[in-house]
Simulated scan of single mutants.
Amino acid sequence: MNFWKALLRLLLWKRVGVPAVLLAVVVSAATFTLIPVRYVSSTIMMVSPPVNGGVVNRNVASPAGGGNPLLIQTEGLSTAVATLVLALSVEETRAELGAPQDGSTDLVVNDGASSPRLIGMSGPFVYVEVDSTSAKQAVDVVARVRERLIDELDARQRELGAPTATYVVLMDIVPPTPPEAGYTSKIMGAAMALVLTLFLALSIAYGLRKRRRNKAARAAAEAAAEPPAVPERKPEPVVNGAKPIARNGSGEEDDMPTDSFPAVVLEEGANGESATRERTG
């Protein structure tokens, strides 16, 4: 909690908050520019049964008789939809159609569960959606997937030996839509860049400030632990060859001379004349 409070205080501090916000805005704008626009194209198809209900002759032994095995199943047309969805889930097939794994084009084929327009509706729908960084690629892949679904459905019915008159077909409910530019990925990327850059900038500022405070605290503690320094006594300056004046502990001049000086003594002779001689005291 203290960490987040510290970040908030740094954000409100102009010396840190303003540069951090400006840096985050610049990075966010650059991210928004670099992320490509995504284009989405889709189509909705429905598996439609034949008019005869999938049965042309009750006599299964007749060469021209029999029915469509896809329609004989309990689930009815849902079996055909599930077969198509599974056939388009193979990675090799998706790569052939122009939507390889980890590529710039994403392909979605399902029963309409991911389509907002089919919410609450039940039926043998096949929903195709292509999301790509190229508008032309999105349209081309939708067209190729649509043709592949039609061919796949016919091939499955031929393999099952269904009479041609009982074939189920795919009909367009919503034809392939023109590519629509989507900015969701750009906006989300820019928002994430803004938040992450601002967080990193404030975290770095918090770390530097805490490091500076810790360093100052250590220096103060070390200074408090050391004994006070005793100032050194500077030697007295020598003026004209004179010796420095001795001082006692109180800083006053010492009255007692440290050296002996010659003394001049006046003596009177016997004849009344005076004479001088030096005497060392």
Rank of each mutant, 00 (worst) to 15 (best):
L70F: 15
V47I: 11
D102Y: 10
E96V: 11
L71A: 02
V108G: 03
N59E: 15
M45D: 05
V128R: 05
M121S: 09
A64L: 11
A82H: 12
V128F: 04
S122M: 07
I119A: 14
A87S: 10
V81S: 13
G65Q: 13
S132R: 13
N68D: 10
S62T: 04
L118A: 05
S115C: 04
A82N: 15
G123M: 03
P50K: 07
T105H: 00
S132G: 05
A64F: 12
P69A: 10
V85D: 07
E91M: 13
P116E: 07
L77I: 08
T133E: 15
S104F: 02
V126E: 02
E91R: 09
L70G: 14
D106P: 00
P116T: 06
I44A: 02
E129N: 03
Y127V: 07
P69H: 04
S132P: 12
E96C: 02
V109A: 02
D111I: 02
P124W: 00
P100F: 00
N59F: 06
G98N: 04
S122N: 08
L77F: 08
A99H: 06
S132Y: 07
E129L: 11
S115Q: 04
I44L: 04
G76M: 11
V139K: 15
L71E: 06
E96Q: 15
N59M: 09
G66F: 03
V55D: 08
S115T: 00
N110W: 01
A61F: 15
N52D: 11
A87L: 03
G120N: 06
S134N: 15
E75I: 12
V60S: 14
G53W: 09
T83G: 09
M46D: 07
E129A: 14
G98K: 01
V51T: 09
V126Y: 01
A99Y: 06
Y127L: 10
S104T: 08
P100C: 11
V55G: 02
P69R: 07
Y127M: 08
L70K: 10
G120D: 01
A80M: 14
T79I: 03
L77M: 15
V55A: 10
S62H: 04
A80Q: 13
I44G: 01
L70Q: 10
P50R: 01
P69I: 06
P50L: 11
P63Q: 08
N68S: 12
A80T: 09
N52Y: 01
S42F: 12
G67I: 08
A113C: 01
G103T: 02
S42L: 13
Q73L: 15
G120T: 06
A87Y: 07
S62P: 03
I44R: 00
M46E: 15
A80R: 13
S115G: 03
A138I: 10
P49N: 11
P124K: 05
D102C: 07
V51I: 12
N110R: 00
T93Y: 04
S122K: 09
A61D: 14
R58Q: 14
P50Q: 11
G67Q: 05
T133R: 11
V109M: 00
G67T: 10
V130S: 03
V139T: 15
T105C: 00
D111L: 05
E92R: 08
A87I: 02
N110F: 06
